[in-house]
């Protein structure tokens, strides 16, 4: 465990809590892509199956449970409690175009051909594209509430810190998890465009982020 990894996990937790509280307090999920939240819940479900098979640390177990609970709670807010405010019209990204290639690739490129390992690999590949429906929805509506952009900022920061964590672990321990690193780099690249807009528009105090 190193500071990059720990701060990355904290940013991830902050992002998830920001989104949950935004929906809960505004009693609305307008501008939020339910599909991305479903994909994240699937990522956690397929990745954290080892909750039942391997104990790593209290921290590891607690964080996995918290992420799973918050992910499913957020999905239930979007699709059940505040479903009237869910803008399914704008949340039109075809997730099958993500799920099929990701599933196929996880069978082709993995560390070992066992159910747990393939599901873990699936979750790694899926996480790198899970945010695309949300980013697509923002380009479609042409705007995002500032709180939504803060959610995306912390999510992108968590991924950037994980890259730093891998650089550190490679330097310190010679650790290199190729599947996680390649997939993580791809995922972080998707945030670059958003980061540019975030720093040039939202942080200039323009409140909403409106796309050109």
């Amino acid at each position: 465990m190193n500071i990059f990894r720990l701060s990355g996990d904290v940013c991830h937790l902050v992002a998830i809590i920001i989104l949950f509280l935004k929906i809960w307090r505004s009693k609305s999920c307008a501008g939020i892509s339910g599909k991305s939240q479903l994909l994240f819940a699937l990522v956690f479900t397929t990745r954290y199956l080892d909750l039942f098979t391997a104990f790593i640390s209290i921290y590891n177990t607690v964080m996995k449970v918290v992420f799973l609970v918050l992910a499913y709670a957020t999905v239930s807010l979007i699709y059940f409690r505040f479903r009237k405010s869910y803008d399914s019209e704008s949340d039109s990204f075809r997730v099958e175009f993500l799920l099929v290639p990701v599933a196929g690739l996880s069978f082709l490129e993995n560390y070992s051909f066992t159910p747990l390992e393939i599901l873990w690999t699936f979750s790694i590949y899926l996480e790198s594209v899970a945010i695309l429906p949300q980013l697509f929805m923002i380009t479609k509506t042409g705007e995002a509430e500032s709180i939504t952009t803060h959610y995306l900022f912390f999510l992108g920061l968590y991924r950037t810190l994980y890259l730093a964590n891998w650089v550190w672990r490679y330097h310190e321990e010679g650790f290199f998890d190729q599947i996680a690193v390649v997939s993580g780099v791809v995922q972080t690249i998707f945030y670059c465009d958003f980061f540019y807009l975030y720093f040039t528009r939202v942080l200039r105090g323009s409140g909403k982020m409106t796309l050109p």
Binding site: M1, H12, A54, N60, M63, Y111, S112, E117, N165
Partner: peptide, 10 residues
């Protein structure tokens, strides 16, 4: 190979 690597990352 990485299989025996403990997946300690979230």
């Amino acid at each position: 190979d990485l299989d025996d690597l403990e997946k300690d990352e979230l």
